[in-house]
């Protein structure tokens, strides 16, 4: 499921927004695997809680979603926010202030154990990687969604790649 598949949920979202609980259930069965896919790599051990909190927020606020065609992007933003929040709260990670040390797409794709790669990174880094490599967003959009400055990300990627590889081969 990608950001380009935007409109197919519109009739279902509209029915759910009108209070049809069967449509809500059907919508949940579509959105739950998507939320689980976004939350898993960012929240790691907190993934189940992050997916649950995401979908609770989604259904609690479904009527406030003004553009049903934007449903998946809306869910994605909530999923990223909840995943980062829960992962940071669990104190299993070290906070970072920038997006340096971000492994490249090739580094991620070549990793034998992606879970191990992800566990070496902060939740914010993991979120950028998920948005970039799994969701197909560019780093600028990904960082904007996270409200993180990204102006220097691209110029730092070479250095980050080296840093990452050193850490990976250590």
């Amino acid at each position: 499921m990608t950001v380009t598949e935007a409109d197919d949920l519109v009739p279902l979202v509209l029915r759910a927004q009108r209070g049809d609980a069967m449509a809500m259930s059907e919508l949940l069965s579509v959105l739950a695997p998507y939320a689980a896919r976004v939350c898993g790599p960012i929240a790691l051990a907190d993934g189940a809680d992050a997916a649950q909190e995401t979908l609770i927020a989604v259904f609690r606020n479904l009527r406030s979603l003004q553009d049903p065609a934007a449903c998946r992007g809306w869910v994605r933003a909530i999923a990223v926010r909840e995943s980062v929040r829960l992962a940071k709260r669990s104190a299993r990670s070290t906070p970072v202030e920038s997006l340096e040390h971000l492994p490249s797409r090739a580094d991620v794709e070549q990793a034998a154990d992606i879970h191990d790669v992800l566990a070496r990174l902060s939740p914010e880094h993991r979120a950028v990687i998920v948005l970039r490599d799994l969701e197909g967003l560019d780093e600028v959009r990904a960082a904007a969604l996270l409200s993180v400055p990204v102006g220097t990300v691209k110029s730092r990627l070479h250095r980050a790649r080296d840093t990452f590889r050193k850490a990976w081969s250590a």
């Binding site: 689980a36 993934g47 189940a48 979908l55 609770i56 927020a57």
Partner: peptide
């Protein structure tokens, strides 16, 4: 090799909690 991304678990009880959140 395509990486195998971790996917969060989402069981039926969590599904019910989420759906109930949409029911006032």
């Amino acid at each position: 090799m395509k990486p195998s991304w971790p996917v969060a678990e989402f069981d039926q009880v969590r599904r019910l909690r989420a759906l109930a959140a949409g029911v006032s």
